[in-house]
Design a protein around this nucleic acid. Structure first.
Length: 469
DNA sequence: GACAGCGCATTATT
DNA sequence: AATAATGCGC
DNA sequence: GTCAT
């Protein structure tokens, strides 16, 4: 798929910004090792013509333990499965699958092995030949896989942690509560453990809307509330609920923390640096305190007291992640009684869901909506577009690096939302905010037309790229 | 060789 | 103790 | 693992 992006991107490079920077950034990014790629959310179309093949491939994916080896590999595997899922015809021979974008040598080989099991005995499901030793090995393997799959259901337990737990002897979610294992769990994992199983089914749109109404009633009216994520993409169900908040008192946008020159010079070290969002040297100490407490005091606290928020995974001045109890009773009516809601949380009755709440600067609304609506394929596509143009895109805005000829030059001339002059390094330049207020503005700056949220998905990216090729 | 980019928590290294 | 790297999630 | 360079 990547090449599709690229070919499209090359043609859409209507601007000629800082070609060098993209190379430097590329070198930098190459150092980063990604964590495992999440395949939990992908669900093949049940009516697709190649369901059988897809299921076998997913099994191979698990059996081979691709997750955890190399995240790019895992990502490619999922991409190939997605491409196969979209393929309209029944796959009969392995030869013509290679012509599908996203499917190459490796997947084609696996498909061949699945379609013609005889040619490779090692992948046969059960052979009469297999010795008892082999049987017990595959059985152990199967158990290991099953346990890891189970443990991974807990938010915060990924393949690595799950493997460690298995090797230590843990076999079930119940086992996790034994002191031996419990002691090794982080606070977020312990919090998640209280809710595991309570939100296995995704959340319907009417429940999301119920939550939105409840929040609108509880939060101070100055807050702007936007439900983003899969809900905004008009998906019928959401595996998690994503809400952005904007408040008129919060308008400062910090620029990216690292400048591109610094990245190129120190590319070997520290591949992952934070955004430095807390840097905020234009506000008084008092104003900073107020801003840092806005989310916790005006949002999280009341929502918790009112019996909406049920558990916390992590909490910072600008983002809260945790579990919500949908304030709705069994009959799909809004549950107005605060006491009922609180007791629903206590005895775990009702519907629960993962919820993320982010507080973002008002002028970043467009960029924030864009980056938080997804889906991840669309996000990658948009970010790659920016990167190829030598720009940086994050949820606060689209940024361009401005070189300043004289190192001594002060960058105070930058517009108000910039505080790049705080950098002590010798590198001279600053991040310029090119667009952030609306999605249209950001996309336009990237040479892209507006895309309806419901169209922001893998199919769009593929179709778009193919058209331009 | 590139593959999005980030926040938060834990673990390894110096 | 401070910093770097890793794990995880979205 | 897949693709472009």
């Amino acid at each position: 798929m990547i090449e599709l992006f690229r070919s499209f991107l090359q043609q859409s490079q209507c601007r000629n910004r800082l070609q060098l920077l993209s190379l430097r950034n590329g070198a930098h990014r190459g150092q980063r090792r990604f964590a495992s790629f999440n395949t939990k959310t992908f669900k093949p179309n049940p009516k697709g013509p190649n369901q059988h093949l897809i299921r076998k491939l997913q099994k191979r994916y698990e059996d081979e333990g691709i997750e955890g080896q190399n995240a790019y590999k895992a990502k490619s595997f999922l991409r190939a499965v997605k491409a196969l899922d979209m393929y309209p015809d029944v796959i009969q021979t392995a030869t013509h699958v290679k012509s599908i974008d996203g499917i190459g040598e490796g997947i084609a080989r696996r498909i061949d092995e699945i379609l013609h099991p005889g040619s490779d005995p090692t992948i046969m499901i059960s052979t009469p030949k297999s010795s008892p030793v082999e049987d017990s090995e595959t059985q152990e393997d199967a158990e290991r896989q099953q346990v890891i799959k189970e443990l991974t259901k807990v938010t915060g337990i990924g393949p690595v942690k799950a493997r460690k737990l298995f090797d230590a002897g843990c076999r079930t979610l119940e086992d996790l509560k034994l002191p031996k294992y419990f002691a090794t769990l982080s606070a977020p994992i312990i919090a998640a453990l209280n809710f595991v199983g309570l939100f296995e089914k995704p959340t319907s749109r009417d429940k999301v809307e119920c939550l939105e109404r409840a929040m609108t009633g509880i939060l101070p009216k100055e807050f702007e509330i936007h439900v983003v994520g899969s809900y905004r993409r008009k998906q019928p169900m959401s595996s998690g609920i994503d809400i952005l908040l904007f408040h008129p008192s919060f308008v400062h946008i910090p620029p990216p923390a690292d400048d591109p020159l610094k990245l190129s010079k120190t590319k070997v070290a520290s591949p992952r640096k934070g955004l430095g969002r807390s840097a905020n040297n234009r506000l008084s100490a008092d104003a900073k305190t107020k801003q840092n407490e806005l989310l916790s005091k005006s949002v999280i606290e009341p929502l918790t007291k009112q019996g909406l928020l049920a558990g916390t995974l992590s909490s910072s001045p600008q983002r809260w992640q945790g579990f919500v109890r949908i304030p709705m009773n069994g009959n799909s009516e809004y549950q107005t009684d605060e006491y009922e809601r609180l007791s629903g949380i206590r005895d775990k009755s009702g519907d629960f869901a993962r919820l993320d709440i982010s507080l973002l600067p008002m002028p970043s609304k467009g960029a924030a909506l864009l980056m938080n609506t997804g889906d991840s394929d669309f996000n990658s596509f948009v970010r790659t577009t920016a990167s190829r143009m030598g720009l940086q895109l994050n949820e606060l805005g689209l940024w361009g690096w401005k070189e300043v000829s004289k190192p001594a030059a002060n960058t105070d001339t930058a517009e108000d939302s910039i505080d790049g002059e705080a950098k002590p390094s010798l590198s001279s330049g600053y991040w310029e905010l090119l667009a952030s207020r609306s999605e249209e503005e950001v996309l336009e700056e990237l040479g892209l037309d507006y895309v309806e949220p419901e169209k922001r998905n893998f199919s769009f990216v593929v179709g778009r790229s193919r058209r331009k090729r």
